[in-house]
Design a protein around this nucleic acid. Structure first.
Lengths: 227, 227
DNA sequence: CTGCAACTTTGCAGTCAATGCAGTTTTCGC
DNA sequence: GCGAAAACTGCATTGACTGCAAAGTTGCAG
């Protein structure tokens, strides 16, 4: 590292804080295997880069910021930036790797928990929406920016589209291999669901439970389709 | 122009061919105002650029082709290329300006023709799907490429998302200003519809009527949502 | 706490997409 | 034909992004 560490994301020791509450209701849940220093540093850096980007964009506007500026601010080489993000815009949007909870996914694949496809989709997505990989605040800022800049929104949509594969697998296990088109359409529907939820959530100023917004979207969909 | 004209898209004189049939059922329809030379040349060039791009990509792969190569092949300056397409990928995808048929749009906005939102959406989109601005073949090739290259598909989705505004207006006039979220969700649904239709159409090898595929998608949606 | 293997970061050189500008050429409407 | 508007072109420049090989870190035995 070059000079001083970034303020924002200090590397905290492993199994400490735990967000104060709730043992996630459901079953099992082996304690997240306390990632090593390497992992934590990586996450911190990613977050720091996103933060630096957001600050600079706030100050100079989206196109007034160059990757080099961000790197300077975050104390990282340009080359490294691209080890973390494929694109400048990815940093703005805070796109980070994410996982579907394995347990929930299994339940979904088996046709549960409610048996209603759309409802179960919401259940499936809720955890990710509830705490996104980089935290709500960063996501919130990213969405605000996306709402302002069409290019970003487009990029975001595109990114979501690329995440489809993850979902495709799960949906396929639930629906079976018989109807590939159906699977595809459903997956698209999931994206729409996620997107609309984001938008509403953001429009509400980030208030309320993401899941609630998702349910509202589902209600709308039902109304429209059956009308 | 530098040397020789491109083979593919010759500039044809104005009010000639007319696709042999059907006076578009509905009312009025002033004959398309026979665009002047300028317009025709522009369209031809756009098409030529897309063709050149497709050929080169076929020969060298998506990333083996530079904008300069395309320009050389099409006999156009690099600078001009970017007067036609905002992006290299836009050329690959053959993104061109398009219009919603004013008459059909009006009918839709008024709640017609069938009164069922989804069905009417299909009716609304059918003309554009049926003859896309640059012709089916080019669209077909573009979709094939998009299916191969995730980046392109992403770009395409993003592009469609940017076209939303056009639709947003129409959907809003139909649904009223009361429920902005609903409008937004419906518009997303339209995109999903268009996209899924494309995909199926492409998967079918470009065979059959796009509208038929669209109706199939709608059927799937109904099944899923009401299940 | 030593040492090796695996993983990251970094600097550098290079490619190429994309844009602004200013001067020419082409088309339009009369 | 003729002037105005629109399109095309070359050029110079910026900045995103990549490959590579040389350091620097971390993980994990021994």
């Amino acid at each position: 590292m070059t000079t001083e560490p970034r303020s924002a994301a200090t590397v905290r020791p492993p199994g400490t804080v735990r967000p104060a509450g709730v043992a996630t209701a459901a079953a099992g849940a082996e304690p997240p295997p306390a990632p090593g220093l390497r992992e934590r540093k990586k996450a911190a850096r990613r977050a720091a880069l996103v933060d630096a980007t957001h600050e600079l964009v706030g100050a100079h506007g989206l196109d007034g910021v160059t990757v080099d500026m961000v790197c300077a601010a975050a104390g990282v080489s340009t080359r490294t930036f691209f080890n973390y993000f494929a694109t400048k815009d990815d940093a703005v949007l805070g796109h980070a790797p994410w996982e579907l909870d394995a347990g929930t996914a299994a339940v979904f694949a088996a046709g549960g928990p409610s048996g209603h496809l759309l409802d179960d989709l919401v259940t499936l997505l809720a955890p990710v929406l509830r705490d996104p990989p980089l935290g709500r605040d960063r996501m919130r800022r990213a969405l605000e920016l996306a709402a302002e800049h069409p290019r970003l929104m487009a990029h975001h949509v595109a990114w979501m589209d690329q995440q489809k594969d993850r979902l495709l697998d799960v949906v396929r296990s639930r629906l079976g291999d018989g109807s590939p088109h159906l699977v595809d359409t459903v997956t698209g529907l999931v994206l729409l669901l996620a997107h609309s939820t984001f938008v509403r959530w953001e429009a509400a100023g980030g208030a309320g439970d993401a899941e609630a917004h998702a349910r509202a979207v589902v209600a709308d969909l039902r109304a429209v389709v059956t009308a």
